[in-house]
């Protein structure tokens, strides 16, 4: 374990950082492939988010526990093998729980292995911090990733199919905006979310600037 700091505030900070300040999708732009590919419905987005969070959590735990035992030279290869092991588990798990979901997500479950976000967390956080902090951080980043996927999935499903979680929202006269569930929609919706966040950040900067001048 690392430093015995007062845990309460610290842990909350680490957790929230993953969701907002260092959101893997909207801020760091990591792990974009599944973000764009499997978010055509809300349920797919949720499943993908949970599967990725599970792999992230388990690999963080193992990497953090083994961080003194892994030689520096082969650490990346070791992390990849650890991640691949958990991904294989998730792959068989989803296949057992729901074959329908498994077919909808397709190869993207196995492609969690090459999600740069997981390797990035293992390298930059779990290999340098104790078990407790690594777990909290992995939960935060996982939650941030799942939230981002849900943001995309919900918008795309509502616009592209007129449904939410499979229930129709708008009545029979709604003409679905089909392109939103097709590949281009993924690019457009994510682009719009990024625009929104950039706009919010600029507005916040302007307000702080104005306040400083007013004082």
């Amino acid at each position: 374990m690392t430093s015995p700091t007062p845990p309460q505030e610290m842990t909350m900070d680490i957790f929230l950082k993953g969701i907002w300040e260092e959101n893997p999708v909207f801020v760091m732009l990591l792990g974009m492939c599944p973000v764009l590919a499997v978010t055509n419905t809300t349920i797919n987005a949720l499943a993908m988010g949970l599967a990725t969070t599970f792999v992230l959590l388990c690999s963080s735990i193992l990497v953090s526990l083994l961080r003194h035992a892994i030689p520096k030279q082969v650490r990346i290869a070791t992390y990849i093998i650890i991640i691949a092991t958990f991904v294989t588990m998730v792959d068989y798990l989803i296949q057992a729980i729901s074959l329908e979901l498994y077919n909808a997500l397709g190869a993207f479950i196995q492609l969690i292995v090459v999600n740069c976000m997981i390797l990035g967390r293992a390298e930059s956080y779990a290999s340098r911090n104790g078990l407790y902090r690594s777990v909290i951080s992995a939960c935060g980043v996982g939650a941030g990733f799942t939230l981002a996927l849900l943001c995309l999935g919900t918008v795309r499903e509502v616009l592209g199919a007129g449904t939410l979680l499979g229930y129709p929202l708008f009545g029979p006269s709604f003409e679905p905006w089909v392109v939103m569930v097709l590949p281009p929609g993924g690019f457009f919706v994510l682009g719009c979310w990024l625009l929104l966040f950039a706009w919010l950040r600029q507005r916040k900067d302007r307000t702080t600037e104005a306040l400083r001048h007013g004082r």
Partner: peptide, 22 residues
Amino acid sequence: PSIAEGAAMTLMLGGILSLIFM
């Protein structure tokens, strides 16, 4: 526009390219 610089712009371009490839 300053808010569209960087990733947002690239994603929009990707969307248009993807439409073309459809």
